[in-house]
Design a protein around this nucleic acid. Structure first.
Length: 516
RNA sequence: UGAUCUGUAGCUCAGUGGCAGAGCAGCCGCCUGUUAAGCGGCAGCGCAUUGGUUCGAAUCCAAUCAGAUCAGCCA
């Protein structure tokens, strides 16, 4: 096949710019993401990083050589296509390209990822290629945008971004497992929080935030954990817990609204239910830990809704749904086996059956889990921390994020300020996201009294000598201050509703995954 | 770390003691507007590994390896 170059003196543009060049001739450069054919026609779905666009290759328009070329184009092949931009409401982007010239950069053989369902293990092995698929594309675009607007939110409000070190000598929250490393012969850890450093820079700059990677060596194998993830940690001098909660609420609403207003098509690709986005204007309820416990145990109703009762109803509807799914599968299988069905219809039904089977797997898992959740919620002991299921039970009753504040001191970090009214509590707050996502923000007013802080460090059995620098912050001009931490991937997961946090970061690192 | 589940074609899976299957992807042909297009055909796997039971094992048993989900911990 002869090679040619068509890019010279052509108007090169990207798919996201098509609306501004309607009826003009342009050159698109990209990769084949799907191809369909008819007699004398090829429908090529092209992706170029900025979007997806159907390009029509018509035998009666292109040269015979180019039409031959179109025949051999396979999935992931790279091309330049010159053609006329036409409005077509049938297309997702609203436009299609009537091709009149083709330049092939590479014809790909055996691209491993097809337009089909794949298992997570396979996709993770091929993560570098999986990123090219439509859903991943949408998630990465939202990730980028959220990162940008987080900076925008804080910068607009006079916050200074300060970076915390990644190598640290002290373990700030003690219990959590840290990655150990060697720092010129000294034992060092990879940072699991930049918060203490943010407190230091807040005393220098007023309102600050950090945005950096953190590392946790927990061998967690759940859909909500990563070994390497990004965290945003604002810290504000002269803020108390109420101001902290106000800021958290404003911040979360700002992010959610921006994505809703500017990234609707990505949310559509992700099939995100938009209820969350529509409710985000409502004030986030603020309840104390004690109230949350009462709600969890079913001792207190909320707007006439009882947590345990709601769960029992959920269990019943799960059971009903499962019965319906089984009946549906049965019906479709009988219809297929009866014969006389067209091949297309058989495929359609098989596909449905596969989906129903997957749904049943999920339902069965819920069926096993919900009774345990009810049991654990009923028997929840005041003074314990909420587990994943407890958070689900609580947030199940709300359609917006919920703030839980005033926590028992024993289950929270040493640096949280004790509650003035009751020494057994601290002025911490967790923001629980609805739809079962659980905690996405953890914040607190910090202990600003030197003696009380020393006491807490001793209670937690932390090595005082490592915290001397931190204690200096209380020795020299201590002021009330507060801050919070936001798990960046957690919020992306929540916004995009992907089933696994591993899909929210380009190259996830977790127990058992170091490549690609 | 514990509990449950999974490992069969490039991919997604069916087959649960009797000669290894389907759909998709690939290749060939047909069809002028397809949206994971459709129709017909071709080719492709010896069932994670090791050992055992059996006349006979993908199927039963055991161990090992790999993975998934949930729990704990958390963001």
């Amino acid at each position: 096949m002869e090679t040619k170059t068509i890019i010279k003196d052509k108007h090169v543009c990207t798919i996201d710019q098509l609306s501004s060049v309607e009826n003009q001739e342009v050159c698109l450069q990209g990769w084949i993401s799907n191809k369909r054919s008819s007699k004398g026609l090829f429908f090529v779905e092209l992706r170029d990083g900025s979007g997806f666009c159907q390009c029509v290759i018509d035998e009666s328009i292109v040269s015979p050589e180019d039409f031959e070329q179109a025949k051999v184009l396979t999935l992931a092949s790279s091309v330049r296509l010159v053609g006329k931009v036409e409005k077509d409401d049938r297309q997702i982007g609203g436009y299609e390209l009537k091709v009149n010239e083709i330049e092939t950069l590479q014809v790909v053989e055996d691209y491993p990822i097809s337009n089909k369902e794949h298992g997570i293990e396979f996709l993770m092995e091929k993560r570098h290629l999986w990123l090219r698929s439509k859903r991943q594309w949408a998630v990465m675009r939202i990730r980028s945008r959220v990162k940008f607007i987080i900076h925008q939110f804080f910068q607009e409000r006079g916050f200074i971004q300060t970076d915390a070190p990644i190598f640290t000598g002290n373990a700030c929250e003690g219990t959590t497992t840290l990655f150990e490393t060697d720092f010129y012969g000294e034992q060092a850890f990879l940072s699991q929080s930049g918060q203490l450093y943010a407190e230091a820079t807040a005393m220098a700059l007023g309102k600050v935030y950090t945005f950096g990677p953190t590392f946790r060596a927990e061998k967690s194998k759940t859909r909500r954990h990563l070994s390497e993830f990004w965290m945003i940690e604002p810290e504000m001098a002269f803020y108390d817990l109420d101001m902290d909660m106000d800021l958290i609420e404003e911040f979360i609403r700002y992010i959610v609204l921006d994505i809703y207003n500017n990234y609707k098509s990505e949310l559509t690709i992700l099939e995100r239910d938009l209820t969350l986005f529509e409710n985000i204007g409502t004030v986030f309820p603020r309840i104390t830990y004690d109230e949350a416990v009462e709600i969890l145990r079913g001792e207190k109703d909320l707007d006439g809704k009882n947590a345990l009762k709601t769960l029992e109803d959920d269990l019943n509807s799960v059971k009903e749904r499962k019965t319906a799914c089984l009946a549906d599968i049965e019906e479709r299988e009988t219809a297929i086996n009866a014969g006389g069905m067209k091949k297309g219809a058989i495929n359609f039904n098989r596909n449905k059956i596969d989906k129903l089977k997957n749904e049943i797997k999920d339902l069965e898992e819920k069926e096993r889990n919900i009774p345990q959740w009810i049991e654990s919620a009923k028997n929840f002991k005041h003074g314990e921390d909420f587990g994943g299921s407890d958070e689900t039970v609580i947030t199940r009753l709300f359609s917006t994020p919920v703030m839980v504040y005033k926590w028992p001191k024993d289950i929270k970090a040493f640096y949280m300020k004790r509650d003035e009214e009751d020494d057994n509590y601290v002025k911490g707050v967790d923001l629980l996201a609805p739809e079962g996502f659980g905690e996405i923000v953890g914040g607190a007013e910090r202990e600003d009294n030197l003696d009380l802080l020393l006491e807490r460090i001793k209670e937690h059995d932390l090595p005082i000598e490592d915290f001397e620098w931190y204690l200096d912050l209380r020795r020299y001009g201590s002021v009330p201050h507060a801050g919070f931490g936001l798990g960046f991937e957690r919020i992306i997961m929540w916004l995009t509703n992907v089933s696994h946090i591993r899909e929210t970061i380009p190259f996830p690192r977790y127990y058992g995954r170091l490549l690609p």
